[in-house]
Design a protein around this nucleic acid. Structure first.
Length: 1075
RNA sequence: GCCUUGGUGGCGGAACUGGUAGACGCGCUGGAUUCAAAAUCCAGUUCCUUCGGGAGUGAGGGUUCGAUUCCCUCCCAAGGUACCA
């Protein structure tokens, strides 16, 4: 009786389907186990051999768990909304629902022939209205929720409204928009309904906002960051530009910290956790507020002229001022000390740039300048007079002058005079003081508050809102040109070109929060508007980019690190570094200085410790047809949710699947797409009166919407009353094992965790992480085959003959090549008729192809289809071979040739059962069986499926040579094999006389007594190298072993007369002789 | 650049907490069976070798009686990420 896999596999696939063998029950005395494979997008190309890898692994584990007595949930479904079906619809007019249905049917056929133990009764399809009803439902729940930071969880929006009504929003700590105004209870209650709605949108977990989005004109849609690769769309490689649009967003940032913390308690691969950690991008530091120094108040140079220093020469001025501050004359120093001691109610600065001069002392509030003159030369006198005139007449300052002598000999009189003048002057227009009445402030985020005294300039992103407000007239042209140039450059250019340093000075200055020194404000495109506050305090000595920028524009690079050379590059090391030249931070380590700097900033109200995240809120609108419609209509421009009881809101029919001529999303083509609030149904657009009939949302949801809770829906997939019943979710709890590709690391797997946490907060699910363990299966790559055609001739050379010849490799279809890399030349000629007349130069009578591992792709002719393999070798062979290829998580090349190995294993296995007897098993039989049980069980638990396949081979080889026919051995062996090769296992099980499916037979129990050995073949090594083996009893003691080994003739031969220095004996393991 | 994972025969890959490197399979070589082929079975297959043996897990060093395994430095490959302040 031959192993007729075709008949066997068809028979059992039919049996499983008819008997619903794998249907999971939502209540059982057995412990539960939920094993899940990521559901596929049903693409038109069907499955290739790479796709089932993860499914097979999940299936093996599911079947194993059934043998182990678990109630196993192992479902499958389809992520059936998506762009390809829509693109196809655009090209052909075929409705995406039809294409999708066809593809699903094809997928189902392919999956069925592989013998998976899916519970198909629970199948879900994200594009099915019965399914997306609940996607819409979750959207509504998110809309009706806000994030309470005090409780660190999401709550119903009702609780927020209640607070607003009672006390306004002063005490509310919520994840909300940055521009949320503050208001009291009275304000709130006085707001109109629309105003209230506007405010609430700033708090809701899904909200409408004008967002700068990645717009892809070619696809007519917005793309998420993870849908863009290298600045072009992942699909199609079309250019992407930045554009402002009103979009639905998901406030995932509210969950940033919890998404980070949750990673610690789930067993997911480290690289995946790392990329999520990276993506969330937490950094600790401080936010620091810099006041922007005001413009000069007087006329003359124009209202916006800057107080401090002429922009065209500020670099030189600042350098000189610094220099002069360091080297004051004795008179200057004396007066400076006195002014500081005197507590004059006003603040003086010294060596300060004003207009095109540097003045000795200045009080900005009073517009008073004090100059101390040294020996006066004639030429100097003229200049000073002109300077005084300019400053007094044109700039509105009061200038008083003293000589060095006056200051040194009669300081008190000098101070008296200054006090008199001060009291006579009115305070200026609210500039220069320390009060917080500056018209503009720049907030920055820094991870290095300890370097605050190293700040020598600030840089704003060109898109920063303050840029237009603070730029001086002199600099306006340059700044405008720069901003425009940056906007034109695509993200791609900006990214590609990181080496070019560019930027423009705005002409404006900020004031250092501690030293009160003016700091020039620049703009530069190395600062990103989308990260932090879009502004940085530049510390060139500590940050390489700041350093490069400073070097390029000749900006001062103060060194604030003790004993560190910064003449060549910035110094970024935080460990063992001592801060210097930093006032109260001097002598502290970076760590200490950070704390100190933050507390000092907090004292003067200029900053606070802050945690910043890279994670942005997720844009949730897509300008597509083939996606979930939003359950939203608009009244007076404000979004309204359709009541849950009228869901699902089904996708409307459209004539065309492209965006409308006016640039609206494809749903803009629908003629029946308006909401009647009386009838609570969709009606024709003609009826829109904005009284009872309103327009519906035209965007649809993104791809990840349908996949963010599907794993929970499987628990109760036909429930029309709820997304799932409390009983179902409380029984199944969460996914125990989730297997899928790593490409979903920062997409599906992050969004799903976010929604799960939200569902948890709202009390819908009992676990705030949906999958305890996750495994990323590796990619299966193709092994391409090449023939080599000589250039300018019609000759095609075999691989061994190409050296020295000018040949081009040409892909040959892998199905035309046999296991020995020989090409079927005739078949090749038939496949590519252009080579019909080509001369194939053979070696040893064969044409040998070249081989190379590449990604599986149609264009490389290396795609291997599982259908053909099932036909030739059977599903069990395919399943075994996919596992046998290598470790699950590793990427590995496919080579169909190797499948003969596992196929002949199955044939040998089959033969073993030809004459089953009731004979008592021998000790050898039992030993073989039990070591197999042990190894296979360990392997499955460790997801090391490749090694258990070889264990099976060893087992069958051994039992065959033992001529084992004993049922007591062969019956448990069938169960061991069953998770891997279920069809043959079922058949053998039945032939052994069992009725019913093998799938619930208990897993054989390992008994270690069968493995006990009497003796051991000791490896005898010399200096760690094994030289020969010696069989010795296991109960032999250390000394006896040593004696026995040393007495052996081979030992003596090895030693060659030398006496060993040392003999290491590890009983039961090894003997090592050193000498 | 940074983070992560890897690097073992012609190929895919084994090797538990440091203890016989190359299990298992493919391919290859030889043989049996056959009119022949397929299939099947048997033997061999890391490299070098003067057939005694010697070398060997990306490279170099270290710890150890003993290192694919632990430590240090470097090289290479794959995946993720990036003017992230």
């Amino acid at each position: 009786m031959n192993y007729d896999f075709r008949e066997i596999e068809a028979k059992w696939q039919k049996y499983w389907a008819e008997n619903e063998t794998f249907k999971a029950s939502n209540n059982s005395d057995k412990p539960k186990f939920y094993a899940l494979s990521m559901f596929p997008y049903p693409s038109g190309a069907g499955l290739h051999v790479g796709h089932p890898l993860g499914y097979i692994a999940t299936d093996i584990y599911s079947r194993y768990k059934r043998h182990k007595g678990f109630n196993v949930l192992h479902p499958m479904g389809y992520d059936s909304f998506g762009l390809p079906a829509e693109q196809y619809a655009i090209q052909t007019g075929q409705h995406p629902a039809i294409t999708t249905e066809n593809n699903i049917n094809r997928y189902r056929e392919q999956l069925d022939q592989l013998g998976f133990s899916f519970d198909w009764s629970r199948e879900v399809r994200t594009s099915d209205p019965k399914y997306y009803k609940w996607t819409q439902w979750i959207f509504i729940q998110l809309f009706n929720a806000w994030y309470n930071k005090k409780k660190d969880k999401a709550e119903s929006i009702e609780t927020l409204i209640a607070i607003f009504e009672k006390e306004g929003n002063a005490s509310v700590e919520a994840a909300c928009d940055d521009d949320t105004p503050s208001f009291g209870a009275a304000d709130w209650n006085a707001y109109s309904e629309k105003e209230k709605q506007k405010i609430l949108l700033k708090y809701r977990l899904t909200y409408l906002a004008d967002t700068e989005v990645n717009w892809c004109p070619a696809l007519g849609t917005v793309l998420a960051n993870d849908e863009i690769v290298n600045g072009v769309s992942e699909r199609g490689g079309h250019p992407v530009i930045r554009k402002k649009m009103t979009q639905w967003s998901m406030r995932i940032t509210a969950y940033a910290q919890r998404l980070l913390d949750g990673l610690d308690k789930i067993d997911w691969p480290q690289p995946l956790k790392d990329s999520q950690t990276n993506w969330i991008g937490r950094s600790e530091g401080a936010s620091v507020t810099f006041n922007v120094l005001p413009p000069t108040p007087s006329g003359g140079g124009g209202a916006n002229a800057r107080l401090t220093g002429d922009s065209s020469m500020i670099g030189i001025l600042l350098d000189r001022a610094k220099e002069m501050r360091k080297n004051p004359t004795s008179a200057e120093d004396k007066l400076w000390q006195a002014l500081r001691r005197k507590n004059l109610d006003v603040k003086f600065r010294r060596q300060h740039p004003v207009y095109k001069y540097i003045v000795d002392f200045i009080c900005l509030e009073k517009k008073l300048i004090i100059e101390v003159d040294g020996e006066i030369h004639d030429y100097q006198l003229d200049k000073d007079a002109q300077r005084t005139l300019e400053l007094e007449q044109k700039k509105g300052f009061t200038v008083i002058r003293f000589t060095n002598d006056e200051v040194i000999s009669n300081l008190e009189a000098v101070i008296k005079k200054i006090e008199d003048v001060l009291s006579s002057l009115s305070t200026g227009e609210g500039w220069g003081g320390d009060n917080n009445d500056h018209p503009h402030q720049i907030e920055v985020f820094t991870t290095r508050p300890d370097t605050i005294f190293g700040v020598s300039f600030m840089t704003l992103a060109p898109e920063h809102e303050l840029v237009s407000k603070i730029t001086t007239p002199q600099q306006k042209a340059a700044v405008d040109a720069y901003v425009e140039a940056t906007a034109k450059r695509s993200e791609r250019d900006r990214m590609a070109d990181v080496k070019t340093i560019s930027g423009v000075f705005t002409g404006a200055y900020a004031e250092h929060p501690f030293t009160k020194e003016p700091i020039p404000i620049w703009i530069g495109d190395y600062v990103l508007a989308s990260y932090g506050t879009g502004a940085v305090m530049a510390v060139p000595c500590g940050d390489q980019r700041d350093y490069d920028f400073a070097k390029h524009f000749n900006i001062d690079i103060p060194n604030i690190f003790e004993g560190v050379d910064i003449s060549e590059e910035a110094f970024a090391d935080k460990e063992n570094t001592i801060i210097a030249n930093s006032d109260f931070l001097n002598g502290l380590t970076c760590k200490e200085a950070m704390k100190k700097a933050i507390s000092e900033l907090e004292k003067i109200g200029h900053g606070k410790g802050k945690v910043n995240y890279r994670l942005r809120d997720a844009v949730f609108s897509r300008q597509r047809y083939w996606g979930e419609p939003f359950p939203v209509y608009y009244v007076d421009g404000m979004p309204q949710m359709i009541d849950e009881k009228y869901l699902p809101l089904e996708l409307p029919e459209v004539e065309k699947y492209l965006p409308t001529e006016t640039g609206e999303p494809p749903l803009g083509n629908a003629t029946v797409w308006a909401w009647d609030t009386n009838k609570n149904e969709v009606v024709t657009n003609d009826l829109i009166d904005n009284k009872t009939v309103f327009p519906l949302e035209l965007n649809t949801m993104p791809g990840w919407a349908g996949s963010s809770q599907y794993f929970n829906r499987y628990m109760d997939p036909h429930n029309d009353e709820a997304i799932f019943s409390p009983e179902a979710i409380n029984y199944w709890q969460d996914v125990d094992l989730y297997i899928g590709g790593s490409e979903h690391a920062t997409g599906h797997l992050l969004y799903s965790r976010f929604w799960q946490k939200f569902m948890f907060d709202m009390g819908y699910v009992p676990k705030d992480e949906f999958a305890q363990k996750l495994i990323n299966q590796g990619m299966i790559t193709g092994t391409s085959a090449f023939v080599y055609r000589e250039l300018d001739s019609n000759k095609v050379y075999s691989k061994g003959l190409i050296s020295g010849k000018n040949v081009v490799p040409i892909h040959a279809d892998v199905s035309l090549v046999n296991a020995s890399d020989e090409l079927d030349v005739e078949a090749f000629k038939e496949w590519q008729p252009e080579y019909k007349d080509a001369e194939f130069i053979l070696e040893d009578g064969k044409y040998i192809v070249g081989r190379e591992v590449e990604k599986m792709s149609k264009s490389k002719y290396n795609v291997v289809n599982p259908d053909a393999i099932c036909e030739e070798y059977g599903a069990d062979s395919l399943r075994l071979y996919e596992m046998f290829l290598g470790p699950l998580e590793q990427s590995k090349p496919w080579n169909t040739a190797g499948i003969t190995g596992v196929h002949s294993f199955l044939k040998k296995l089959w033969k073993l059962y030809a004459n089953v007897s009731d004979k008592e098993p021998t000790a050898d039989n039992l030993k073989t069986l039990h070591k197999t049980i042990k190894k296979v069980e360990e392997d499955i638990e460790n997801f090391s499926f490749n090694t258990s396949v070889s264990t099976f081979m060893i087992c069958v080889n051994e039992l065959t040579s033992q001529k084992c026919t004993s049922k007591a051995i062969l019956e448990p062996l069938a169960i061991l094999v069953s998770p891997y090769a279920p069809h043959i296992a079922e058949e053998l099980w039945e032939r052994l006389g069992n009725t019913g499916s093998i799938s619930v037979a208990p897993f054989p129990k390992f008994d270690s007594t069968y493995l006990v050995e009497r003796s051991k073949e000791y490896p005898i090594s010399f200096n760690g190298k094994m030289r020969f083996k010696l069989e010795l009893p296991l109960d032999m003691g250390k000394d006896e072993i040593e004696a026995a080994v040393l007495a052996h003739e081979k030992t003596q031969a090895q030693l060659g007369g030398r006496t060993p220095k040392k003999v290491i004996v590890v009983p039961g393991k090894i003997v090592n002789i050193v000498g």
